[in-house]
């Protein structure tokens, strides 16, 4: 589930409020959005890749909390790690032309 909105990274664009399919965030005037409905998070990681400044962290646990500090996420270079794996940058899509999944499907037969 979503665990961290980094106030130090956040630029208050509220894109996450808009794109979260589960409506987990609430916008706050002149501040970073808050995680208002954490239990509704479906752990899809999509907010992370839409975030233009990699300010969000979704923990791998989909059932219940998984408390983790912002310092640990920074230390382990996990902010934006899914976006980097896909080839998305600063909230912009990219990388489908390099997807090697067709090779996996050949190997799976």
């Amino acid at each position: 589930m979503i665990e961290i909105v980094s106030a130090s990274r956040c630029i208050e664009c509220d894109i996450c409020v808009k794109v979260c399919p589960a409506n987990v965030f609430d916008a706050v005037p002149d501040s970073a959005p808050i995680i208002a409905r954490q239990d509704d998070c479906q752990t899809c990681y999509l907010c992370e890749i839409y975030c233009p400044v990699d300010a969000l962290y979704v923990a791998h646990r989909a059932e219940g909390h998984f408390p983790i500090t912002e310092a640990e996420v920074e230390e382990r270079n996990l902010f934006g790690s899914y976006a980097r794996a896909l080839g998305w940058k600063r909230g912009k899509a990219g990388g489908t032309e390099h997807d090697p999944t067709h090779r996996i499907r050949v190997a799976a037969v």
Partner: peptide, 9 residues
Amino acid sequence: DWLRRGQPN
């Protein structure tokens, strides 16, 4: 390598 790059999630 293909799994990691093709199925990153």
